[in-house]
Write a protein that binds this DNA or RNA. Structure first.
Length: 292
DNA sequence: CACTTGACCTGTCCGC
DNA sequence: TGCGGACAGGTCAAGT
């Protein structure tokens, strides 16, 4: 579930909490969740101090003072939840900011990082996510980072850059291209559907059939929905929570996603759900016509 | 080569 | 209430 806005929300939370803290211990459930632990953990992680928490596409990068970094992908159901000794006082029962998840670790907990008086839990129900320890200087050489496209929210990412990237795949459907991380970084199913609705583009439209004006609308639509979602703490359908265990509220503002059978907020026609590029896809068949 | 489909996992929901 | 099947927000490898 976590797409760019959710991962960015987690990054901001971790960035407020982790820098300056030293890793005291690490435990993990399976090699799958932490492929190069524990041998490397003992040697490279314990005693390391967190310097910064960054994000590239949907991947979190926790930079340590040892020239190593932890890189973390939440995939569909990953969570990173931070609990300090003070959290019971700050987020106890009745507190509006209290965590929505219970005692940790729970049965979805895969990796635990212990800091002084605090723990960071990596939970992942479906076990698609992972944590890796890599030399910081090697990160740009990792296959995923070499291939991944530009950050759509970067200040220097202009409409023309967006159009040029998208047009590299003229014969694909626009939905498939938006989801392709090598074209644009960080777009997932929710923000693909929402941005296509905003730009009034049918998700099955071939890229070559979309006018320049519509592509410009899509550029702005994509950025608008992502900026709004970050402001709302991301989308929580089921699993996603921030570092304090709180859900995001963006889906309250969604126009089509998970709204099949309801009225389109723009024209009142019924929103439908179809399958495009192998993914559940939500659209208004009246506002979003196939030929631009 | 460009593009699409299945596999990876667990949990939940829906129809019988 | 139980059971089988479909489905879930991401990414690869393998297939056409």
């Amino acid at each position: 579930m976590p797409e760019l806005p959710e991962v960015e929300t987690v990054r901001r939370g971790l960035s407020d909490l982790l820098p300056g803290k030293t890793v005291l211990a690490v435990s993990h459930d399976t090699p799958k969740s932490f492929p190069n632990a524990p041998a490397d953990v003992k040697e490279f992680l314990i005693g390391a101090k967190v310097e910064a928490v960054k994000r590239r596409a949907k991947v979190l990068i926790i930079e340590l003072d040892t020239k190593y970094s932890l890189i973390i992908h939440l995939k569909m159901t990953g969570q990173l939840v931070f609990r300090s000794r003070d959290d019971k006082k700050r987020f106890g029962a009745g507190h509006p900011n209290r965590s929505l998840i219970g005692d940790l670790p729970d049965k979805s907990t895969r990796v635990i990082f212990e800091f002084n008086e605090a723990f960071l839990y990596f939970n992942d129900q479906r076990k698609f996510g992972w944590v890796r320890l890599v030399p910081t200087a090697e990160i740009p050489n990792i296959d995923f980072f070499r291939k991944v496209g530009p950050e759509p929210l970067a200040a220097d990412f202009k409409p023309q850059d967006f159009k040029n990237r998208i047009r590299r795949r003229p014969n694909s459907t626009i939905k498939a291209v938006l989801l392709d991380q090598t074209v644009i970084a960080g777009v997932g199913n929710i923000y693909a559907d929402e941005s296509l609705w905003t730009a009034r583009i049918h998700p099955e439209t071939k890229v070559r059939d979309i006018s320049p004006i519509k592509l410009t609308k899509l550029y702005h639509g994509l950025r608008d929905v992502m900026f709004l979602s970050i402001e709302k703490g991301g989308s929580s359908d089921k699993n996603y929570v921030d570092v304090a265990g709180r859900q995001g509220s963006y889906l309250q503002f969604a126009n089509v996603f998970r709204r099949e059978g309801k009225a389109c907020p723009r024209c009142g026609h019924e929103i439908i759900k179809i399958r495009v590029a192998g993914r559940g896809t939500h659209l208004c068949p009246h506002c979003q016509r196939k030929v631009s």
